[in-house]
Design a protein around this nucleic acid. Structure first.
Length: 425
RNA sequence: GGAGGGGUGGCCGAGCGGUUUAAGGCAGCGGUCUUGAAAACCGCCGUGACCCGAAAGGGCCACCGGGGGUUCGAAUCCCUCCCCCUCCGCCA
């Protein structure tokens, strides 16, 4: 959520910068509602002040036991009290409308974000590692997985549906090894605290990070409850500090969290229908940071580096791109994607998305900090990024380390986690 | 699932319709005293919206788990929801 005062004071500027995201965003309703709100607040406060004063006098009358005087005042005070309630009802209606509008407005892109319409306009930051050359035609990961009998999409469809997978044997082990490797690196080397959160959250948490109300249909919901399956650990972990005022000295707070993630993929019909790339359920190790506002852009850089380390340890070629205005998510001020090279597809595919949300989520979830012990609370900046998407990492390992005979070599960094398995065959 | 007991400021804890501008204590901050520290004493010590002001600051209103109601007036009474604790039942 954007700051109402900032929006009203910089209407044209905000509209112009939001327009770069594409899709018309009309802020005019916000300005008029904000003015109406201010007028109503002034009215209500003045009336309440009068009522409070009159009640002080009532207190005196009650003490002196002057029943006649009390009865005389009662009539007019009842009328005042009633009109206050009416005015307050009007005020809360205006505030509700205002909030509905504000909750639907995306974050303002940072100055450094390239303006563009879609993924084609994203800008390359750098590449890491070079794609290996194959002297045979590299297979897709689902072909490799099915041949090795470690992936089974048909039986997954039988028990669940499309966009699910079953892993067997060394495949299941590989998924688990990747999770362990990622968590070990982030906790031991990068200073993150591991978090194991609930996999279902309430709608307040979903609103805090920006999934609700706008993207309700992209999540799975538990019928008859206010529980919603998390689409990413970002949701429970960021909202851990909802309604809190953090000690400035504790920042940055850095969490990493392995969780399954659940996504309805409502708008993705026909996209990546085969394989592990786009599943209703997938594992992810997520990095989440709470930062002082003046440090958040540096924290985004280090978050990005922390995620890249995993790819480097796994000897997987990747590149980093900055998403353009048209390709960014709703809550982000800036997003850098890490894309891994997939020889089976002959393409770089997203494996991590690292974003600075500035104070957008913090305002929704009321996550603040005090710069000094007696200072006024300020909103923190929240950041997060995948470190990494585990299923897609497994895809990358299978495709990049496949051999001509159909086997897959386990990258050295992963072997300690594979219980003696060096090659899948 | 059943039966009870609770949710008050960073924490503990009073309050049970108008002496509350939320008592008191702890922690924290500033000061006096002291060579220094401790102790003692004094002061400060919540959040948010809105108004005035260039600012420093001042004013005003709201907030005692959330929402609603009764009343001239609600932390206090009523309804409802949420959460926590204890016991019982069931259970991975």
């Amino acid at each position: 959520m954007l700051d109402l005062k900032y929006v009203c004071a910089n209407m044209e500027e905000v509209e112009k910068r939001l327009a770069a995201r594409g899709g018309g965003i009309d802020l005019s309703g916000i300005k008029s509602l904000a003015a109406a709100r201010r007028a109503l607040i002034m009215d209500v406060e003045a009336m309440r002040g009068r009522l409070n004063k009159a009640n002080e006098e009532m207190k005196e009358k009650a003490r002196s036991g002057d029943k006649v005087a009390i009865e005389a005042s009662r009539e007019s005070l009842r009328a005042l009290s009633t009109s206050i309630k009416e005015k307050e009802a009007a005020l809360s209606e205006v505030e509700r409308k205002l909030e509905d509008l504000l909750l639907a407005v995306p974050n303002v892109p940072h100055e450094s974000v390239p303006v563009g319409a879609d993924a084609a306009d994203n800008s390359l930051v750098r590449t890491g590692g070079a794609p290996r050359t194959f002297d045979f035609k590299p297979l897709n990961h689902w072909e490799i997985g099915e041949r090795l009998k470690i992936l089974d999409f048909e039986r997954a469809a039988k028990i669940a549906g499309t966009r699910f997978a079953v892993y067997y044997g060394a495949g299941a082990r590989l998924e688990r090894a990747l999770v362990a490797l990622m968590l070990d690196i982030h906790t031991n080397e990068h200073g993150y605290t591991e978090v194991w959160p609930p996999l279902m959250v309430n709608s307040k948490a979903m609103a805090g990070t920006g999934q609700f109300p706008k993207f309700f249909d992209e999540a799975f919901h538990v019928t008859g409850t206010d529980y919603h399956l998390i689409p990413t650990a970002e949701v429970p972990v960021t909202n851990l500090h909802m309604d809190e005022i953090l000690d400035g000295a504790s920042l940055p707070v850095k969490y990493c969290s392995y969780t399954p993630c659940f996504r309805a993929e409502a708008g993705a019909a026909g996209k990546d229908t085969r394989g592990l790339i786009r599943q209703h359920q997938f594992n992810k190790v997520e990095l989440v940071k709470f930062s002082r506002p003046d440090r958040s852009w540096d924290e985004l850089e280090s978050l990005l580096r922390d995620a890249c380390v995993i790819l480097e340890r796994l000897e997987l070629p990747y590149r980093v791109v900055t998403l353009c205005t048209g390709d960014m998510g709703f809550a982000a001020a800036k997003t850098c994607d890490i894309e891994v090279w997939l020889p089976g597809q002959g393409a770089y595919r997203e494996i991590s998305s690292c974003s600075n949300f500035t104070d957008f989520q913090a305002r929704r979830a009321r996550i603040r900090f005090r710069a000094a012990p007696k200072a006024k609370p300020e909103l923190v900046h929240t950041l997060n990024g995948s470190g990494l998407a585990v299923g897609r990492t497994l895809v990358a390992v299978l495709e990049n380390f496949q051999q001509a005979d159909g086997s897959v070599v386990i990258p050295a960094a992963l072997r300690p986690y594979m219980g003696g398995i060096d090659v899948l065959q």
